[in-house]
Design a protein around this nucleic acid. Structure first.
Lengths: 113, 113
DNA sequence: AAGTAATACTACCATAGGGTAATATCAAAG
DNA sequence: CTTTGATATTACCCTATGGTAGTATTACTT
C-alpha cells in the first residue's frame, strides 16, 4: 500500500541529483578531483565567471559535496563526498551501454551498407 | 592541460542526472521497481496527473531508463536500466552519512542538554 | 591610509521545465 | 456508427534557476 520509499526521502534524493545535473557544477567537481583548489584556480580550470563559480561553490558546500577551508588570503575547496565519482562512473557505464545499443540498431538498419 | 573528461561527455552525464532530479520521475521509477506497469496503474500508484505521467514516461523512455511495450489496449512500461537503483542506493548512503554528521554537530553544540 | 587581490553577495534578465486543461488518437465494445 | 476507455499531444501558465554586471567585504602590501 505505502510506497517503499517515503516521499520526503525521495525529495532529498532528487535534490542531490539536481545538484549533479548542472554541467558547470560537474566541471567544478572534476576540477577538484585532483585535490583541493582555491577559487582563482577553479575559475582558471573551468573558464566560468567568478560570480558564477562562487554561487556554485556555495551550492555544493551547502549540500555537503565539498568542504570550504580559508587559507590566508584565499579559500580552498575540496571534495567532501567521494561517492560522487563512484556514481558518475556508474552513469558513464550506463551511457556507454546505451550508445552501443544505439549503434547496433543502426547497423541492423543496414545504414552503413 | 585538457580536462580529464570531455565537456560533451559531462553534458551527457548532467542530462542523465537531470532526469533523475525530479521527484515525480523518481516516484514513477519506484512504482516500476516491482515490475512492468501500464499507465493507468502508474497514475494510481503515484497520484500524478495523466498528462504529467505521460510526459515523464516519454522523457524516461527517450533517455533509455525505461522500456515501452504496448499490450492490447494499454501500454506497459518497465525499468530498462537497472543501474538506476544502484545509484540511488549510493546517494541514500551518502545522505545518511551527512544527516548523521549534522546530528553529531548538534550534539557537540549541547543543544539537547 | 591607500591600493590591490581574492572572494562573496545582490539584483536582474532570460530560459527551461513542471503541472494541467483541453484535445487528439486509437482500439475495443455495443 | 457511436461510445467508452487508454494513452499521447498541444498550448499555456508559472516558478525555479543559471549567468552576469556591479558592488561589498576582507586581508595583505606598500
Amino acid at each position: 500500500m505505502a510506497a517503499e520509499v517515503s516521499i520526503e526521502a525521495l525529495g532529498q534524493v532528487a535534490e542531490y541529483f539536481k545538484v549533479l545535473s548542472e554541467i558547470s557544477r560537474l566541471r567544478i567537481l572534476c576540477a577538484l578531483k585532483s585535490g583541493a583548489k582555491n577559487v582563482t584556480e577553479i575559475i582558471a580550470m573551468t573558464n566560468l565567471g567568478q560570480a558564477n563559480v562562487s554561487k556554485h561553490l556555495k551550492t555544493l558546500t551547502q549540500v555537503g559535496m565539498i568542504k570550504r577551508e580559508p587559507r590566508g588570503v584565499s579559500v580552498y575547496y575540496e571534495i567532501a563526498d567521494a561517492s560522487i565519482f563512484e556514481i558518475c562512473e556508474i552513469v558513464c557505464a550506463s551511457l556507454s551501454v546505451n550508445i552501443e545499443a544505439q549503434s547496433q540498431q543502426l547497423e541492423q538498419l543496414h545504414v552503413f551498407r
